[in-house]
């Protein structure tokens, strides 16, 4: 009898509580669109262990994403504001507050590595990508951000508009023009210059979601295109 009572209490109180909890998790602010090879994440809710990230996995605020060698993850913000492609050997944190009809304070914090971004035009709130030394505020554009092991920050803007604010040194802010790159060195030194062709290539690579390359066999009748991953 006692046993039955316990079961009753359990099913009446505990289960609905669990269901309740399960049914109203912290709303996701992002979703993984594509995952190649070795990508793990720590969800913002349960930060205990690294779990393999799979496409269609939702990510709550404060989630972390880590990529291995030759790996890639493409992440979409649920407000449709943009795509972040996390390239190999990178570590990214995702922040944002779910507000009314939008996500406020969207911030992708790049601890290490390279991310590419493609951001739709932002109405009010800017789309932030930050690193320990600088914050980029993006208003609808594409480009990439690199944060080296030696703490050098590189921001390349392919198109659109953005600005970069230093968190070190004189905390200056620099508007970035299309086709320009800014380098922020750990000592606070800034180099603002036109992008090199290598950076252009890096950008194209970062936005290539297939991680793919092409090889062509040119023949008198046309060409054979072989698409492959590296």
């Amino acid at each position: 009898m006692k046993k039955l009572f316990t079961i009753f209490i359990f099913s009446v109180i505990i289960i609905p509580l669990c269901v309740l909890k399960a049914e109203s998790p912290k709303d996701p602010i992002a979703i993984a669109k594509k995952v190649i090879k070795e990508v793990t994440f720590k969800d913002g809710l349960e930060k205990e262990s690294w779990i393999d990230l799979k496409a269609s996995q939702t990510l709550s605020a404060e989630s972390e994403v880590k990529t291995g060698t030759k790996s890639l993850a493409a992440i979409l913000f649920t407000d449709g504001s943009g795509t972040i492609t996390v390239r190999e050997n990178s570590h990214l944190f995702i922040y944002g507050d779910k507000g009314d009809k939008k996500i406020n304070n969207k911030n992708s914090f790049l601890d290490k590595g390279v991310i590419g971004f493609k951001v739709t035009k932002q109405k009010d709130d800017a789309f932030l990508i930050s690193t320990p030394t600088a914050v980029a505020s993006i208003r609808g554009s594409s480009g990439f951000v690199e944060f080296d092991d030696d703490s050098t920050f590189i921001f390349h803007l392919n198109d659109g508009s953005a600005s970069v604010k230093l968190l070190i040194g004189d905390k200056a802010e620099q508007e970035i023009g299309e086709g320009y790159t800014i380098e922020v060195h750990p000592d606070g030194q800034i180099v603002y210059r036109a992008a090199t062709s290598e950076e252009q290539t890096t950008f194209n690579d970062t936005m290539n979601l297939n991680n793919s390359k092409k090889l062509f066999i040119n023949t008198p009748d046309g060409k054979v295109e072989i698409e492959y991953t590296e």
Binding site: V224, E225, I226, E227, Y228, E230
Partner: peptide, 18 residues
């Protein structure tokens, strides 16, 4: 190179663009 790609299962697609 192509042999190796095939071996490693890295070929995504092959198309003849005429």
């Amino acid at each position: 190179f192509i042999k190796q790609l095939k071996k490693d299962g890295k070929i995504i697609s092959v198309k003849y663009l005429k």
